[in-house]
Computed example of a mutant assay.
Amino acid sequence: MSKKKLSKKGKRNRFLALSILVLLFLLLVFNLGRSFSKNDKKERHSMTTESSITSSSSTSTSTSTTKESAIDWRAPSQTKAYPTLQTGDWVLVSTKKQRVYVKRGEQVLYTMYCSTGTNDSPTPLGTYSVEAERGENFYNAASAEGANYWVSFKDHGIYLFHSVPVDQNGQYIESEAKHLGVTANSHGCVRLSVADAKWFYEHALYGMKVVIE
């Protein structure tokens, strides 16, 4: 075979080898591009999910704050009129729900927001009754708090229904009042809104059953 024919054959082989290398390089670039695209999509999905979680958390916090601020601790708990109490009506205090239910048998006549005792100073659970002691206001120097419209239900002046707390000047302590209906935050008494406490002070029947659970 002549040198000329060998030279042509060698050129074809080199061209073929070069073509294969170029093809392999293009395939490598294509695969790398797809890999980066998948990772980018995963990252975007992760960021979207994280953003969604953050947004959900913010909404939850906002809802919680709204729930707390929506309670008017000066006003009646419900828009309907207070009931006219009769002999046999009774009161159920739920320390879990932070609510006071005025009941006639099993019928709920009226529901009031409340704040009961903390874990360190709990409201005693059990069955009691409205006692004779009641008054328009008091102040306890030891706790630096007082209240208006109090009605005793245990130990004759120790455990009371009363309004949200006041300071030594008779001004309502708003930082304490905001816990009404939301958090157990008293020293053992049952705190009510100003309007609810006034109504209960004026209308609670002596001997009326009080169940705290």
Rank of each mutant, 00 (worst) to 15 (best):
R44N: 14
G117S: 02
Q171L: 04
S60R: 01
F138I: 12
E106R: 03
S2K: 12
H203D: 02
E43N: 03
K38W: 00
C114L: 07
Y159K: 05
L27F: 10
L125I: 12
K103C: 01
T183I: 06
F138W: 13
G10E: 15
K178M: 04
E43T: 04
P76I: 00
R134D: 02
S51I: 14
E68V: 11
T54V: 15
Y101H: 09
S175D: 06
S175C: 10
F25L: 03
P124C: 04
V100H: 06
S7N: 11
T65P: 09
Y139E: 04
A142S: 08
K3P: 15
T118Y: 00
G135N: 06
L32F: 13
A17D: 09
P124D: 05
L23M: 12
Y201K: 13
T116S: 02
L6M: 12
A132D: 11
Y206F: 09
T65H: 12
K4E: 05
D155I: 13
E213V: 08
K154T: 13
F153R: 02
L24S: 14
L109M: 00
S129K: 00
W199E: 05
T63R: 08
R14V: 12
I212R: 04
G126H: 03
F200G: 04
T61M: 04
M47V: 04
S35M: 12
T95C: 00
P165N: 05
W90R: 02
L109G: 00
V211T: 14
G188S: 13
L160P: 03
T127I: 12
T127N: 06
G188I: 09
K42W: 01
N169C: 08
N13W: 02
V164S: 03
I20S: 15
L85F: 01
I20C: 15
N119R: 13
S46L: 13
G135V: 02
L21Y: 10
W90E: 07
T65S: 13
S37E: 14
A142F: 05
L24M: 15
K198R: 10
K67M: 09
T54M: 15
L26E: 09
E106W: 07
D72R: 15
V194S: 05
S186Q: 06
S143T: 11
S2R: 14
D155E: 15
S193L: 09
H187M: 07
E68F: 05
R134Y: 01
A141G: 01
S55H: 05
W73M: 07
L23I: 14
A141C: 01
Q78S: 09
N119T: 14
H179L: 07
K42E: 07
Y139Q: 06
V211K: 08
T123I: 11
N39Q: 07
R104A: 10
T123R: 02
Y101N: 07
P122G: 08
I71Q: 00
T63A: 13
R191N: 01
S37P: 04
D120H: 11
S77M: 11
E136D: 14
T65C: 12
S129W: 00
P122N: 10
T48K: 14
Y110N: 01
R191F: 02
E136F: 09
E50M: 15
V190C: 03
H179P: 08
E176S: 08
T183D: 03
N119M: 15
